[in-house]
Design a protein around this nucleic acid. Structure first.
Lengths: 245, 245
DNA sequence: TCTTATTGCTTCATTATGAAGCAATGATAG
DNA sequence: CTATCATTGCTTCATAATGAAGCAATAAGA
């Protein structure tokens, strides 16, 4: 196993980025009925996948770094992005780079800032960057083998998302402009991991008063055509700000 | 204005700690009817107060660093400690150290990990460390002038606490072993910043089933003597774990 | 002993939630 | 063209949670 590009870029990082600090992004996208995460596979790195991540430049705000990294490594752009936790244990990368020289950037001790992002699955086309061999959506309930503690980081991000969905409207960033009530319910169920009662879900969402009902339906599927909605951005923001967001 | 000790310790830090990374702790304590924060005042640093903070040693886990810093700089020990946010904007310290040499540790660009702590006010005796002139509890609604973005960090921590109190039992770490129902209500009101209905609060707390009613009362105050309670630690933990904690 | 503020706990009206169901509808099969 | 079917929009009913108010008990002090 060899990661030449990684080693090369390692040297560059020493000069331009803050040492001992990295960012990992958990990018959630919703497709049909499943919640997905955007993952990368390094060249020649066996079967281990990683989260899109990178380093903070010396004169770069943390949020800007997260945006840049995500754009460079996955093509995702203009998205909802937030920190959710910090991972600062020792030996987080233990074992993964032991064959390499001690001056390899990645072998160092790292404090990692975890960002999670919510994106419209349809509008993101995964981009394979120079150091990667693959970049794709993976369903949250069928994650592949992952490097270091990256699986744990994803679970932590998902737990954050699940907590937020309890008392905050969610969906604006995860759904396309127009969507149906069953699609919104599928999103909630995919995030929560369990089924919701249809009528009660309908009632609860309607009471939020964050949906704008469009005068059209989504025909083409079998059975009754569902009504299309879009988010009423003003009320959506109002609902969030009443909760202190 | 001079901060000799700070400059001295700055040199030591370069050798032992992770560069560009710091920790600030927002320590909440509850006294009578008010929520307080533990603050320090640097020697000779005019009237500006700071949060107890410090740096992460090269071979030290982040949580351990936070514990150590808090112990060293304020005497607080064995407490509930959690990250709540990361502050990584540029120029956070702009203007505060401009008179000093550029190689002053503090003048550098810093990413700060925010920790919040919940402690029993009575059991913490503020300790004034070598680089401080003062260390004391300050009520949350009467904060003094503070250095850099430290006031913002406190507000951010308080917002986190307020969010958590909505759907999580809180109080175990902020109250003494034995307490009364009005005291618990006062704590909630101090955190939330507004009054709660007495009967409804009583009913809600009782339904949580996290209190152990003791067979004694707190006599001595005027009027009817309130019953003493302690937390039923088992049920308290169960209530938390049902919420995924 | 009387007054007072405080406390423990309940009652009643209102609102939210869980479970179930009914009518409408668009596609499909016959 | 019509019957069937799963799905959808939305409502109903029972139960639980919440907001507002109040009653009786009580410890301290007048």
């Amino acid at each position: 196993m060899q990661i030449k590009e990684v080693i090369e870029s390692s040297k560059r990082h020493w000069e331009t980025a803050l040492p001992h600090l990295s960012i990992d992004c958990v990018v959630f996208g919703f497709d049909q009925k499943r919640l997905n995460v955007l993952l990368l596979k390094l060249k020649d790195n066996a079967n281990n996948w990683i989260l899109p991540g990178g380093y903070v430049l010396k004169e770069e705000a943390l949020d800007d770094a997260a945006k840049r990294i995500l754009k460079e490594r996955s093509g995702a752009d203009k998205i909802f992005l937030n920190t959710f936790n910090v991972f600062g244990n020792l030996n987080r990368s233990e074992g993964y780079f032991k064959e390499y020289d001690d001056d390899l950037w990645h072998k160092q001790r790292f404090v990692t800032i975890g960002y999670y992002a919510l994106v419209d699955h349809q509008s993101v086309t995964p981009v394979i960057d120079a150091s990667s061999e693959d970049c794709r959506w993976m369903p949250i309930d069928e994650l592949p083998e992952m490097v270091m503690d990256h699986k744990n980081i994803i679970e932590n991000a998902l737990a954050t998302l699940r907590e937020q969905i309890r008392y905050k409207p969610i969906g604006y960033n995860l759904l396309p402009e127009e969507f149906t009530m069953p699609e919104l319910q599928n999103l909630y169920e995919a995030i929560l991991g369990y089924k919701l009662n249809r009528g009660n879900f309908y009632r609860r969402i309607m009471r939020y008063n964050i949906l704008k009902r469009l005068d059209k339906e989504r025909k083409g599927g079998a059975h009754k055509a569902p009504i299309l909605y879009s988010f009423d951005k003003e009320n959506y923001q109002k609902a969030l700000s009443e909760l202190g967001w």
